[in-house]
Write a protein that binds this DNA or RNA. Structure first.
Lengths: 197, 197
DNA sequence: ATATCCTTTTGACAAAAGGCAAAAAATATA
DNA sequence: TATATTTTTTGCCTTTTGTCAAAAGGATAT
């Protein structure tokens, strides 16, 4: 695992934020003060079921999944996230209620962590940061809609091929069982889809 | 159709906004200046395919659906929205690109309209308004996620019963064909689900 | 009231996807 | 390298959902 430097990681995320909306020195400083590197070993949980999701994790290295358990105890993967993406359990983080969803590292991970408390502080004391928060939420919302629409209007095969087009790296990094679940199908069905090219 | 008064409608939306984050007099005034009543007859389109979604509509009365066309020309309903909800085509409105989605009135509708230009102006000149925009986006994002998860982990029958629980009014107002589509199934399947109680 | 239009249900059959278990392949571990 | 472990594929059979077309039911307008 490549060594990751806090300063450099913070510079990276500040650059992303600044390209959305220019931040004041004070805001940048506050973000630096409130964020820290957090690592997770493969299979470790960033968030457990029934826990409140208290932090957002910007993935610097590695890959995570968020997943649900249905009434029969079956797992259903809802997001597969890699470098440059934000890992949260949407409902729990925004509402600060107990989570029905868990977040698990699928590889050893290095993240930049920002607590909900810190984020609220930033939003409150630097109103301009809300522009950035709003923008990022809009982007993830667009992606969430797009996933829901794919599940509604595409067949399993089409959803798989769309994923190959949009996120080919994921296929190489994530076990097919999780990918099948993310696509809303069983692993055997995915395997059969792959077999027929 | 009940007569709707602009002042009163604006008071209603200002009240919602204020309960999210207290607004300045100036912001309230600007929102009043930039919003207007817009009505749509049943079957009229709030947004056509390939058009840029230039306005957000707060539904005061009536019911709308947003829908996609797939490659075979079949319609797929993505949202069913009623009083108190915001009608937009998520991708097109936020990105201001041409829409793959259309918005249609399922009943005669009265809405409070706010253009994207006006909204940008509000965001730019009243930073606090971004708090409200961020919050609302978060809420719709949560719902979008919840829909995607239902499509992934619930059977058609379970999705139908969940909808009955969460939005029983919708069932009484919207033709079953649209509801089936919203649930990601065909109308015949929905009819069979209903037949078996 | 009757004709028209739109919505909903139903029937017969087809296709898609799931369940379960075993086999095969790929990876990790000693 | 051999062994254990995990991941992926496959076979067989069931269930769910889709397709297409026709029938039934409701609402609306003249």
């Amino acid at each position: 695992m490549t060594k990751i430097d806090l300063d450099q990681a913070q510079a990276q995320i500040l650059h992303i934020f600044n390209s959305i909306y220019p931040m004041s020195e004070a805001l940048e400083k506050s973000i630096r003060q409130h964020s820290k590197l957090t690592t997770f070993n493969k299979k470790a949980h960033l968030l457990q079921f029934n826990e409140v999701n208290k932090s957002i994790y910007f993935i610097l290295q590695g890959c995570v999944r968020t997943y649900y358990l249905n009434d029969d105890g079956e797992e259903h993967t809802s997001w597969l996230l890699t470098e440059g993406e934000l890992a949260i359990s949407v409902y729990s983080f925004y509402s600060q209620q107990k989570s029905f969803e868990a977040i698990e590292a699928l590889e050893d991970c290095v993240t930049l962590e920002l607590t909900h408390t810190a984020l609220s502080h930033l939003y409150q004391h630097h109103l301009e940061f809300n522009v950035i928060g709003r923008y990022l939420t809009e982007q993830y919302y667009i992606e969430s809609e797009s996933k829901a629409n794919a599940l509604r209007m595409l067949s399993a095969k089409e959803r798989y091929h769309e994923l190959i087009l949009r996120k080919p790296q994921i296929l190489r990094r994530v076990p097919l069982g999780y990918i099948a679940s993310y696509l809303g199908i069983t692993q055997s069905t995915l395997s059969r889809i792959r077999a027929k090219i």
